[in-house]
Design a protein around this nucleic acid. Sequence first.
DNA 1: GTTGAGCGTT
Length: 203
Amino acid sequence: MSHFGRSGLPDISDTYSLLILNISFRTMADDLFPLFDRYGKVVDIFIPKDRRTGDSRGFAFVRYKYADEAQKAVDRLDGLKVDGREVTVQFAKYGPNAERIHRGRIIEKSPRNKGRSRSCSPRRSSKYHDDDYRDREYRRRSRSRSRSRDRYHGRERGYRYRSYSPDYDRDRYDDEHRNRSRSFESRGSRRTVDDQSRSVSPS
DNA sequence: GTTGAGCGTT
C-alpha cells in the first residue's frame, strides 16, 4: 500500500495520530509502514513535504486505528534506528484525535460537543489566514536550512573578520564621525551651496 | 549534495 498521503484524508474517524520525529530526509511513508504496521493497524501515514522542493521535512505522521496499538508503537518504536537515525515516536498534538489525546496521554473521556463551533463570526478575514500560513511556513523554513547555512557560510567568517579587525572599529568610528560630520556639513551645506550658488550665478 | 528543532495534507 503505497497510496499514503495521495488522496487527502482517507478515513479518519477514529484514528490516533503519532508523530515521528528525527527521521531521515530520505525516509518515506513506505519505509515507515512496515515498521509501524507490525505493532498495530496503520490507517494512514503522512509525511509533510516541502511545497517547492517536495523533499521530506524530517518527520512523519502515522495514524493508527486503535489507541492501545498506537501506545505500543510509541513504546516499541521510540528510539529505534531508522535509516541510521534514532526516530522519536510520540503522540501528535493536532489531528482528528486531538480531542481524545492530551499531551501524549490518551484520554478516553466523554468527547465534547462537536457542534460547538457554530459561531458565525467572520471576524477573521482570509487575509489573516493567509498571513498566518505564510508565517508558519516561513518560520519552519528559517529554522532548518537557514541556521545550518549560516553556520557554515555567513556567520563564522563574517564574525571572525569583524571581531579581529582593528580597522573595523576605526572604520566604524570614522564612519560615525564622517556621518556626523556629513550631517553638519549637510546642514551647513545649504548655506555653502546657497552662497556658492549666489556666488556662481549672480544673475 | 548538504541540513536536524519541531506538530500535518483538503
